[in-house]
Amino acid sequence: MLKINKTRQTTAEFFVIEDKQERLVKTTVINTDNDAVSTVYETLHEPELYAKHRRDMRKHEQELRELRYKIEDEILAELEAEETEQVS
């Protein structure tokens, strides 16, 4: 018997331009398991830059949150399709 567990990992890096240099402010890693449950890990590299650019950071965090929900919904749709096939 073969059993396959699909998982998905999304890595996001948040950058700002400071003194004409690209600076990594924050990294977020999202692991989504085969039941569409996500675990989020965040590392804040530059708290001062995050505070200074908070408005933009929050906008991008929201975009990432929407992507996470989209991935979870895709997995749920796949699970529902598999259940429907098994019943047929």
Rank of each mutant, 00 (worst) to 15 (best):
L79W: 01
Y69G: 12
A81Q: 15
H60F: 13
L79N: 01
T32S: 10
V40A: 07
E82G: 08
E48G: 06
A81M: 09
T7N: 11
R58W: 07
T7G: 02
N34H: 10
E66C: 00
E72D: 14
V37P: 02
N5H: 08
T10S: 10
L64M: 12
T10E: 06
K26L: 15
E82I: 13
E66W: 04
T27W: 00
L79E: 00
D19Y: 00
A12S: 15
V29K: 01
R65N: 10
R58A: 08
E48D: 11
R8K: 08
A77C: 08
L76Q: 10
E74S: 14
N34W: 08
N31C: 04
H45M: 09
L44K: 07
V16A: 14
L64F: 02
A12R: 08
D56C: 06
Y69I: 11
A51H: 13
Y50A: 14
E78R: 15
R54M: 13
A12L: 10
L76S: 07
E74V: 06
M57K: 05
D33T: 12
T43W: 05
Q9M: 09
A12V: 13
R23Q: 15
E61R: 09
H60T: 06
L76K: 14
L79Y: 05
L76D: 11
E80Y: 12
Y50N: 12
R65K: 09
N34Y: 07
Q62W: 05
R68D: 12
E22L: 13
E42W: 00
N31T: 06
V37T: 12
T27C: 03
E63W: 08
E78M: 13
K26E: 11
F14I: 06
H60P: 01
L49K: 02
E22Y: 09
K20Y: 12
E82L: 14
N31Y: 00
Y50Q: 14
E13N: 09
V40K: 15
E18T: 05
R68Y: 02
K59D: 09
R55V: 08
I17R: 13
L67V: 05
F14S: 06
T11R: 01
V25M: 00
V37Y: 08
K52F: 02
D56E: 07
K6Q: 12
I30Y: 03
D73Q: 13
K70F: 03
K26H: 13
E82R: 11
I71R: 00
Y41R: 08
Y69M: 14
K26I: 04
R65V: 03
D73W: 04
E74D: 15
T7C: 03
T32A: 10
T32R: 01
D73K: 11
D56R: 03
P47V: 01
I30R: 05
L76I: 11
A51D: 15
E48T: 08
H45K: 10
R23K: 15
I17Y: 14
K70L: 11
E48I: 03
E13Y: 08
T32I: 15
E74F: 06
K6M: 12
E78K: 15
K59I: 12
E78H: 07
Y41L: 10
K20P: 00
